[in-house]
């Protein structure tokens, strides 16, 4: 598993649940207090034991943690990079949904050894979509649910997002678009602020 993914979990635990929780989780999963390096690759078992320790320490189900993680990735203001990279996907939330299938390719453009979920979008009707998500980590669909919910907010769209169980080769996410411009979304300027 790419270090970026492990590090994302680490940042989520540390920022949302505090240093003490992270200290406990890192000890239980055997990673060490310093945690993961973003630009290294780790064994998948490491990610599994990290998640298992998070479930025990945070006393929350794995699905809740993963969904929270997805929301955190977009809405965490200390690192705006991922939100911005996702916003390049399209001008509207609908555009954005249609570019989700490019996600693994876009990931590889940035980091050739980064594997991201493979997603296929099925349009049931203009306001209902099914997203099939394939990724070696069980529950990745929940991360997508949290992430899409935060992205809908970011675009100012009103959408219902649900994990719809498992298909033969992936997890299904149901997307119901209720209103494409429900609220004023967060602004997105193509040029990154120089800071």
């Amino acid at each position: 598993m790419h270090g970026l993914i492990n590090r994302a979990i680490q940042c989520y635990v540390r920022d949302m649940h505090g240093e003490t929780a992270w200290a406990q989780i890192s000890r239980q999963s055997g990673i060490g207090l310093d945690g993961f390096e973003a630009m290294q690759t780790y064994d998948r078992a490491m990610t599994e034991s990290l998640l298992a320790a998070s479930v025990r320490v945070l006393m929350r189900p794995r699905e809740t943690i993963l969904e929270d993680l997805g929301t955190f990735l977009v809405s965490n203001h200390s690192s705006d990079a991922l939100r911005r990279l996702l916003r390049f996907g399209g001008v509207t939330f609908k555009d954005f949904l249609h570019t989700l299938e490019d996600t693994p390719g876009r990931g590889k453009l940035a980091l050739p050894d980064l594997d991201l979920p493979v997603m296929d979008l099925y349009e049931i009707n203009p306001s209902i979509y099914m997203l099939q998500c394939r990724f070696p980590l069980e529950g990745a669909g929940h991360v997508i649910v949290g992430l899409l919910r935060a992205m809908a907010d970011d675009y100012g769209a009103l959408a219902l997002l649900d994990h719809d169980g498992y298909s033969l080769d992936g997890e299904m996410v149901l997307i119901q678009l209720l209103e494409v411009s429900y609220a004023q979304g967060r602004s997105f300027d193509l040029a990154a602020r120089a800071d």
Binding site: L4, A38, M39, A81, L82, R84, L85, F88, G90, V91, R106, L109, A110, L111, L190, A192
Partner: peptide, 27 residues
């Protein structure tokens, strides 16, 4: 903005890459 570029223009991809590269370099 996105609307200022032709749909076929790779400008958005270029901008995306610059940001991705910057984020990776920072890391």
């Amino acid at each position: 903005t996105d609307a200022d570029f032709a749909a076929t223009d790779l400008a958005m991809e270029l901008l995306y890459l610059v940001e991705a590269k910057t984020a990776v370099t920072d890391e």
